[in-house]
Design a binder for these strands. Structure first.
Lengths: 192, 192
DNA sequence: GAAAACATGTAAAAAGTTACATGATTTT
DNA sequence: AAAATCATGTAACTTTTTACATGTTTTC
């Protein structure tokens, strides 16, 4: 149950409307948590019902009209409670690694290599984007605790993309000179 | 929809019962995909209904009795189809990073530093475990395509844990000498 | 023969995804 | 005034998580 807390954090950083939040989830918050606008609107509704946030007063009709939210004291308290929790790192879920493993039994082909290269390009582009954010932030050169924490999270994003780029380069190099289907003696043990 | 394909891969590597699969998901397959036994049993039922796998014949009563499955040709074909697909890297979902970001607005305290150290220890332990797997595999020194692919995936697991260990060390070092709550001039912009 | 471990399974709730619907504002 | 864009929202579905239920085999 992290989405409500991600929203509380974002709203504490800056009161926003649902669509603004959606955009911010595509950027900074989104390095490590994503959400669609449908999720966000649903969650904003729940948070408002629980009196963790409130809509800033506006003209009556709501549909199609911008609606800005701010965090109430109870919401801030809930966020503090959540930050203090102990949680386990959640299990990874990565399809590309799974598909690579599947090629071990059905064979690697040129299409799969192309897929690896496509992912390499995507991660490379994201890495460049994050580094551009870093460049801008450094130029601004601020030193509040919030800035330092945001910089750490961004550094995490950069390092994560570096992991992908480096690993994919290695995987591509290794698989590129595979003779397509050298069967070799098949056997059935799994890694102990 | 990757779980059925993860199961097909695992069963092609070695026909297994549900509980055996669960255990293998805690190890090799689990570097990048996890599943509980409930998920696995449900999915085995669906795969059997779709004639992608079949239970090896045994004595009649099924409840409490070991039931081993193997992949049928249709299942292998489905796995090949899936490996050939193009997919986007799925969005990350990491709670620790989210909580770190939240400390930017509610403040970093000693408890949160302890939580970071706890995660550091967990990732360090997993890293050691994966490296032990690598050591064993290298000792066995095999060279089939399947071995090479499994080694690549395992290397991915190692690199991923290295990312965490390094980033956490950096984060802990940086936050440890924060004077607990130097407020600084608050403002409300988000990263552009 | 009781306890522990092994093994399969069911049910309900929570979270996330996909597709669609609708109103308001701005641009041409 | 039509089209594009901004903005909020609903509905249906799938996936994942959590808690529980039950039977079988092995060990003491």
């Amino acid at each position: 149950m992290s989405l409500p807390h991600a929203i509380l954090t974002a709203l504490l950083e800056k009161p926003s409307s649902g669509l603004e939040l959606t955009r911010r989830f595509d950027r900074s918050i989104g390095y490590f948590w994503s959400a669609t606008h449908q999720q966000i609107y649903r969650e904003l509704g729940k948070l408002e019902k629980n009196a963790f946030i409130r809509a800033l007063p506006t003209d009556s009709p709501t549909r199609g009209r911008r609606k800005e939210y701010e965090v109430l004291p109870a919401g801030r308290a809930e966020l503090e409670r959540w930050v203090g929790e102990n949680e386990q790192p959640r299990a990874l879920r990565d399809t590309l690694m799974l598909r690579l493993r599947a090629t071990g039994v059905v064979g690697v082909d040129a299409d799969f290599l192309a897929e690896l290269r496509r992912h390499r390009a995507l991660h490379g582009a994201r890495l460049a984007e994050y580094r551009e954010f870093q460049r801008r932030d450094t130029a601004r050169g601020r030193g509040t605790e919030r800035d330092r924490v945001q910089a750490l999270v961004l550094q995490g994003g950069v390092d994560m993309e570096l992991f992908w780029v480096n690993w994919l380069d290695q995987a591509i190099a290794e698989l590129a000179d595979t003779p397509e289907d050298a069967p070799g003696p098949e056997d059935d043990r799994d890694r102990a």
